[in-house]
Computed example of a mutant assay.
Amino acid sequence: MSKQITIDDLNIFYGDFRAVEGVSMRIEPRTVTAFIGPSGCGKSTVLRTLNRMHEVIPGAHVKGSVKMDGQDIYAAGVDSVNVRREVGMVFQRANPFPTMSIKENVLAGVRLNSQRLGRSEADDIAEQALKGANLWNEVKDRLGLPGSGLSGGQQQRLCIARAIAVKPSVLLMDEPCSALDPISTLAIEDLINDLKEEFTVVIVTHNMQQAARVSDRTAFFNIAGTGKPGHLIEYKDTETIFSRPDKEETQNYISGRFG
């Protein structure tokens, strides 16, 4: 199911303002890629272009290309809704639908895609997605209770279950552990390692130790100054980035000299 992502000379705009310039990189299937860098450097902006989520902001647009297995998701005639079915997203803060049960939270995206589900099929999809998110054993006896009644870490895994229930090829995560305690963070990190067996995973994190723990490759982004566009400084396998980066700028960031 997972796909290769090829980004070529990507420039991201909000109106006339260029927020990110000249990003080129290739993300391989069944890997975890971490985007790191200081606040405002464009890493979350780049992440949102991978499923065209940035387009919900009026005036936002891109130049360059983002290809999934060779298909440019910005080509004429490509439906952004179909792109978002193929590329799931988990946000910084868990956002289960408060009026829905645990089961219906998992099925929300499937139902939104206009799929008519029989009860047994719905039960099976919910169970498989919750198992995929390592949450099934904790909630299987209370699927009819509100998702908002779960702990913070459980809510985040519920949102991951909702994302994978529609069977995407790519899973994007924008700082998925920033609001969680250490134990919940560890559970999400273990889950990310499992998810790459089936999905291409891209994660934005401010936690460099987390990037070192969970990712196969790491991209370091930076910004020259206020009002300047963010840009990709270095992109390599994670061990190299954290032990022997090519760029002094990368070394300065990972050693804590700025950011």
Rank of each mutant, 00 (worst) to 15 (best):
P229W: 14
A212E: 14
R213E: 15
F221D: 06
R217V: 09
N207I: 00
V204P: 04
G225C: 11
E197D: 11
Q210T: 07
L191E: 07
V204M: 05
F221L: 12
L191Q: 07
I203A: 13
A219L: 07
Q210S: 12
I233A: 07
N207W: 01
G230A: 09
F199H: 10
A212H: 12
N207S: 14
I233H: 03
Q209C: 00
D216G: 02
V214Y: 03
Q209W: 01
L191D: 12
R213N: 13
K196H: 10
A211M: 01
N207M: 03
T200N: 04
G227N: 10
F221V: 13
R213S: 11
Q210P: 11
I203R: 05
V201E: 04
I223N: 08
K196G: 05
V202A: 07
T218Y: 08
M208C: 08
H206D: 06
T205S: 14
K196F: 01
T205Q: 12
F220R: 03
R217M: 04
K228E: 15
N222H: 15
T205C: 10
F199T: 09
R213Q: 14
A211C: 05
I203C: 11
T205G: 05
L195A: 13
I233R: 00
F221N: 04
F199E: 02
R213M: 10
P229N: 06
T205P: 00
I192S: 08
D194C: 02
R213C: 12
Q210F: 07
L232D: 03
A211T: 11
Q210W: 01
D190E: 14
V214S: 03
I223H: 02
P229K: 10
L232V: 05
T226Y: 13
K196V: 09
G225I: 06
I192Y: 01
R217S: 05
S215Y: 11
T200R: 05
V204D: 00
R217E: 13
A212R: 15
V202L: 12
G230L: 06
G230H: 15
G227R: 10
E198F: 01
N193I: 09
S215H: 02
A219Q: 10
P229A: 12
D216Y: 02
N222C: 12
F220T: 00
I192E: 09
P229C: 14
Q210A: 10
S215I: 05
F199Q: 11
A219M: 04
T218V: 10
T200M: 11
V201D: 02
I223G: 03
N222S: 15
E198I: 05
G227L: 03
A219F: 08
G225R: 03
S215R: 07
E197C: 09
T226R: 14
N193S: 13
V201R: 05
N207G: 08
G230M: 10
I233F: 10
R213G: 06
R213T: 11
A211R: 03
L232R: 02
I203N: 07
F220C: 08
G230P: 01
V201C: 14
F199K: 13
A211E: 00
A219I: 04
V202W: 08
Q209E: 15
S215W: 10
